[in-house]
Amino acid sequence: MNQQARTWRRSWPAVATLALAVVVAPLPAMAAEAQPAAKPAKSLVASAEKAAAVAAVNAAAAPSMAQAGTTDLGSSSFFKTKAGAIALVLVAAGLGYTIYSTSNDRIKSPGKN
């Protein structure tokens, strides 16, 4: 087995786990927020038809798109939902990781000592 293949084998589980975690973790939470009456397949198609790419990433940018979902993104009660809670956890994790990196990965020049 060559070096490249070994590296791939080494990293693939991590990548797959991460991808799975990202997929699996938010989906049930999001699904739980959806209206029970909505049929997932139909809803998928319907929202996809409406969604411009930009609006999909930042739905709040487009007034018309803001009406598309049932979750109220205009209220802080959003953070009491599962999706909102996950968002807060991810923010805390991401911010914490960045703060940790700011001190831990710092290359400090002797010229600043």
Binding site: A19, V22, A31, P40, S43, A48, A56, T70
Partner: peptide, 12 residues
């Protein structure tokens, strides 16, 4: 691959 649920968009 795009998943859209309610106001959420997930992309892999």
């Amino acid at each position: 691959k795009v998943f859209e649920f309610d106001v959420h968009r997930l992309g892999l």
